[in-house]
């Protein structure tokens, strides 16, 4: 009896140790590098995670670059980084290249970003817009010159258009969602890769209309208005709730990190991604993006466990 009791205690202690040990003690002493690059849209999230990760694993060097989703994938497929921040899904061309290079990867959604259609504060006629009307405005060979061309009840004034440049993931997504074909867009509008320029443009022009990432709208709510999108769900304004619930369609998109599967062999990379998924729910909101439903993070956590 006595024997089995001590055996039980021993078992209990070792069980506790087994649970705790790989979790805490090892993270503090973890060393190595986690090399990340890619989209500037995803950057603030990854940066926030990297910053917090320092208190968990102070000796791991996390490096985050911003060479754009496409530029990041190039480095990712050349094998020089562990993780790529991507504001769009990997293209089939890139998948092919990965197969050729024998690179096995994992796609992990980390947050939602809503593309926001914005208008000037003084705009008192436009209360909502339909995707069809947006297509009329933005499609290639668009004939829209005035607001009246979009909806006959709107004023006969020239519409001034602002949008992201063609290197941006936002441009890729918007054109796909609205015009039906990625990268098909009219080209006679004010373009800038810097969303702050677009904010300044729309806020200074009564007859302006533009689109860019939700985070930039959130920070500039006092300067510009979001135009609700009318879909089968009704007229929906972009917000944390509507994007999270998935009612803000078709302009909300998931953003991702892509990780090389063989990089999971490095404990510091695995730990980092694990930490990413555990903390994203809170930190994503902090930097102006919309977190995924909890279950999605848990699902990804489950997936990486076996790697």
């Amino acid at each position: 009896m006595k024997f089995s009791k001590s055996l039980f205690t021993l078992f209990l202690i070792s069980a506790i140790l087994l649970v705790i040990a790989p979790y805490d003690a090892s993270a503090k002493t973890l060393r190595g590098k986690v090399s990340i690059d890619g989209s500037s849209t995803v950057f603030p999230i990854t940066e926030a995670i990297a910053e917090e990760f320092r208190s968990v694993a102070p000796r791991v060097k996390v490096i985050v670059g911003v060479s754009g989703t496409g530029g990041g994938f190039k480095k990712f497929l050349a094998g020089s980084i562990d993780i790529n921040n991507a504001s769009r899904r990997i293209k089939s061309k890139e998948v092919k290249k990965a197969k050729k290079q024998n690179i096995d990867f994992l796609e992990i959604p980390v947050a939602f970003d809503g593309i926001t259609v914005v208008i000037n504060k003084a705009n008192d006629w436009a209360k909502e817009i339909t995707p069809a009307e947006l297509k009329k405005i933005w499609n290639t060979n668009s004939k829209v010159v005035t607001w009246k061309d979009v909806r006959s009840s709107w004023p006969d004034k020239k519409i001034k258009l602002y949008g992201p440049g063609t290197d941006s993931g936002t441009f890729d997504y918007f054109t796909k969602a609205i015009n039906g074909k990625s990268r098909a867009s009219r080209s006679n509008y004010t373009m800038s890769e810097d969303d702050n320029v677009l904010v300044a443009g729309v806020s200074g022009d009564k007859y302006a209309l533009g689109y860019f990432g939700f985070a930039y709208y959130l920070e500039n709510k006092t300067k510009i208005n979001a135009l609700p999108i009318k879909s089968k769900n009704g007229s929906i304004t972009p917000s944390m709730e509507s994007i999270n619930l998935g009612t803000y369609v078709p302009l909300s998109r998931p953003i991702f990190i892509y990780a090389r599967k063989d990089a999971f062999k490095k404990p510091e990379v695995k730990k980092f991604i694990q930490f990413y998924l555990e903390e994203a729910g809170g930190l994503v909101k902090d930097v102006g993006y919309v977190p995924l439903p909890k279950a999605d993070y848990e699902e990804s956590l489950e997936k990486i466990k076996s790697l």
Binding site: K33, R54, I63, V64
Partner: peptide, 20 residues
């Protein structure tokens, strides 16, 4: 530098010429 791949988030001082 952006093209060459200078990172935007680096939390350590380079210790060798081959560091990010």
């Amino acid at each position: 530098l952006i093209i060459v791949g200078a990172a935007a988030y680096v939390a350590f001082v380079p210790e060798s010429l081959l560091d990010e």
